[in-house]
Amino acid sequence: MKIKHLLERENVLAGLLLLPVVTYIVLFIGFPFVMSFLYSISNVTIGNPEFKIVGMRNFVDLLEDNTFQQSLVNTFIFTSVSVGLVLILAQVLAELLMREFKGKWLVRFLIMLPWTAPIALGTIGFLWFMDSVFSPFDWLLRTMGLLGKPGALLGASSNLYWLGRPGLAMASVILVHVWRLLPLATVILLAGMNSIPKEIVEAAQVDGAGYFRRLFHINLPLLLPVTAVTVLFSVFFTFTDMTVVWVLTKGGPPPHATQVLASLAFLKSIQGGDLAQGAAVAIFFFPVLAGIAALVLRLAKKSVVT
């Protein structure tokens, strides 16, 4: 059979076109993915190339380690609080952006900045914003009399050590996450809201449904898939994030007040040289990721059937 005609055979052509991508993914995602699991049950370090299976020892060590426990808890707290806040705020903002008004393009650009600016660069801005001496936010609070005077609402010291006190540092990390994710969540919700056919809303209005009834019986149910997508992506980006923590606090204030799983994994492996332990930490992502993957699959199946 001529080569030309061979290429006409759908299966052959499809296979050939997919080969590069599938090969690449298997080599650089699939294979390393398996390697992570292997590393986590081994004793590999950067200095020592020897590879020995040590069973669950890394995991046991981790689970008894305070730092790890704190990282695990932090990761969950940061994720849930951030995503929760983002969901609420994004609903409000999306409603606002549904309307037409002058200069909308500029407003959109400004509102999108936290997400469209590269993550490390935006976070750098917050380094200054929350500096322990020069923080503009502190300046504002001092000017308003809420800080820096005896008897002031937020205390007599001239600065709130945003990144220096454990509680505040955690709040700061959450703040940056919310700040970044809000634009993304908003546009996704907005796209969903705009895709609700006008006729359905109008039919409900004609049928006599008031604002709240419409909200609960029409808008929210129809927005469920989009909201689910928003939640999934928000959780994913927060849960696996290392950049915000690393740039802002490097996991501090000491010893590990804002450490998260990702930054801990980095600390242990690249900085500490213990690849096996680092891998073990990262493996804890797996249950949550698998859960997200399952939900994405469910959503995708639903849409194919619709």
Binding site: F28, S36, F236, S269, F285
Partner: peptide
């Protein structure tokens, strides 16, 4: 779905590679 395998998991074996 492979996008959901995060760099913060893969970076260790990949740095070795």
């Amino acid at each position: 779905l492979t996008y959901l395998v995060p760099p913060t998991l893969l970076f260790i074996p990949l740095s070795r590679i």
